[in-house]
Computed example of a mutant assay.
Amino acid sequence: MITVIGIGPGNPQFCLVGQEKFYKEADVILGSSRHLEVIADKLQGKGVVAPKKLKDLEELLLTYPETTNLVYLVSGDPLIYGLGKWLTERFPGRIKLVPGISSMQYLASKVCLPMNDAYLTSSHAKEPNFELIMSLSKVFCVTDNKVGPYQIAQEVVKRGLKKTLIIGENLSYDNEKISIMAADQVLDRDYDMNVVVIVDER
């Protein structure tokens, strides 16, 4: 069994209650170096840093017998632009998903913005559907370093739209930064681990 656990936005205090028992029962705990920081010191010996490339990750997982009790730690929630979909497709019948708090949910809570009518998307390793995004009143987007806050803002500006961007960087960490501004005020700079919300100006 491979138990995929969403550890939330990053800070260990946002891990959901009950996850500790999975760590104690696991034979191996996989995740990035940052993810593995959430497990107790006494369990660190079970930790294995997972490769970043999906092909390498798949090869690593296949080296473990199916009887191995594996735990895989992922950011946010496994099924909100996480590895949950990919893992369930690659290892059908072997995956158990444990939800977490997504970075989108965390940012929404910080700025008291309801998500009932929100559209969720991502720009990780792909070109977003900007025509769709710009036609909607509230969009949450997990971004990467190619299509980030500035690039999204420029898509707003070139269409002459009136939209506000809420940019959350390093969410839940000590260096967390949340900025709220009109699209034409977004600077062309590097943004650390971020989520962008695009909303119609009110």
Rank of each mutant, 00 (worst) to 15 (best):
S102T: 14
L73D: 05
A108Y: 09
M115T: 15
V49P: 01
K110I: 13
L113K: 12
P78R: 01
V142P: 01
R94A: 08
L83F: 12
G45P: 00
K126I: 13
G45H: 06
T143F: 04
R90H: 07
C112E: 09
S103M: 09
I80S: 08
N116E: 15
P149A: 12
V48F: 10
K52H: 05
V98P: 03
M134C: 12
K53C: 00
K110D: 12
Y106A: 13
Q44I: 00
P65N: 07
L54E: 11
E89P: 00
K146G: 04
T63N: 11
V49F: 06
V48I: 09
M115L: 15
H124L: 11
V71Y: 05
G82Y: 03
N129I: 04
L97A: 11
F130M: 12
P99W: 00
P128I: 07
C112L: 14
V147R: 01
Y72R: 10
L113F: 12
K96D: 07
N145P: 10
L62D: 06
L43D: 14
Q44Y: 01
G82L: 05
G45Q: 06
N116P: 02
G82M: 04
E127K: 15
P78G: 02
W86G: 00
L73M: 09
A108D: 07
D117E: 15
G148Q: 04
Q154Y: 01
I101E: 02
L54T: 13
L57D: 07
D56V: 10
C141G: 05
V142E: 03
L87C: 07
I95C: 01
K55M: 10
E59A: 15
Q44S: 01
A153R: 04
K138M: 11
G148R: 07
W86H: 08
S102Y: 01
V48S: 01
V71K: 00
K53P: 00
L83P: 02
P92G: 11
S122G: 13
K126S: 09
I95F: 00
K55V: 15
K146D: 11
K110A: 15
V71F: 07
T121Y: 08
F130P: 09
G47T: 02
L113A: 07
V98I: 15
G76V: 08
K55F: 14
K85G: 08
F130S: 05
L107N: 08
L87K: 04
K55G: 10
L70K: 02
C141Y: 05
I152N: 04
W86C: 00
A50Y: 00
V111C: 12
I80Y: 05
L60Y: 03
S109E: 09
L70Y: 03
K85P: 02
S135Y: 04
Y106Q: 08
V139W: 03
V48Y: 07
L113Y: 05
R90T: 10
K138L: 15
L113V: 10
H124W: 11
Y81A: 14
L60C: 03
G84S: 04
G82S: 07
P92E: 13
A153Q: 05
Y64E: 11
C141M: 14
A153T: 08
V142A: 06
Y106R: 11
E66M: 09
Q105M: 14
P92I: 08
W86F: 13
K52N: 03
N116F: 10
F140P: 03
G100P: 03
S109C: 14
L97Y: 06
T121S: 12
D117I: 11
